[in-house]
Amino acid sequence: MVVGLTGGIGSGKSTVARAFQKIGNVAVYFADDEAKKLMTTSSIIKNQICKEFGEKAYQENELNSAFIADVVFSNKEKLATLNSIVHPEVYTQFKAFVEANKDKEYVLYENAILFENASAILCDKIITVIADESIRIQRVVKRDNTSEIAVKNRIRNQWKDSKKALLSNYIITNNTSDNLLNQIMKIHNNLTQ
């Protein structure tokens, strides 16, 4: 079984994913991390990114994440172009990951843009992590050492929590006072019954 895990930037998806990893025989695929790795290691992706975004896209053979983020999070067409370059490779890698982890209780597919890039079709169940926007902004400003405006631009490029929630089987609320582990355990027990 493949369980999608999504949520807006700063919602705490990765924290939730790591908690699922600790409580059961669960394999977790972190799509964002794998995409970043592929953008540095895949010559096919690197060539296409350079062609679309110019030589500034890479510095000393490493992805210039700040430059790419500035371009794509202020231009929806550029974001769609980047996703169309990276997503097919991530998809291929994810299929192999699922195959390699057939012995697990389930595979958790952590993906910030699960709905936006149509990856939800790969999932048997979907969990959305939500948090108040002000908390999300604080988390990302602190984590990425970025500006509030930059975070708001990224939030604008993602679906609203309410839209994701309508298409999800489970919702986890991850504000500071929420009992995160209880929510995770309840869902894990439900998935493994």
Rank of each mutant, 00 (worst) to 15 (best):
N117K: 09
V71S: 11
K152F: 11
N83C: 11
I172H: 03
K160M: 12
H188R: 09
N157M: 15
E133I: 10
P88S: 08
E52F: 02
Q158G: 11
N83H: 13
S84V: 03
S11Q: 02
L114G: 09
T40L: 08
E60T: 01
L108A: 08
S42F: 10
G7K: 00
I9S: 08
N169Q: 07
F94E: 03
A27W: 01
I130Q: 02
N25F: 05
R154M: 15
A27Y: 04
I23D: 11
L79K: 15
E60R: 06
N169I: 01
S177P: 06
N157W: 03
I187F: 09
T6W: 00
L63D: 03
S84I: 02
T173K: 15
I135Y: 05
K13V: 00
I9Q: 05
T6F: 00
S84Y: 06
I149K: 11
S42V: 13
S65V: 04
I184Y: 00
I45V: 14
A100I: 01
K46V: 02
N25L: 05
E60A: 08
N174T: 07
A17M: 04
N47K: 14
G12I: 00
T81G: 07
N174P: 13
E55P: 10
I23W: 03
E99A: 11
A120G: 12
F115D: 04
N175P: 14
I9T: 04
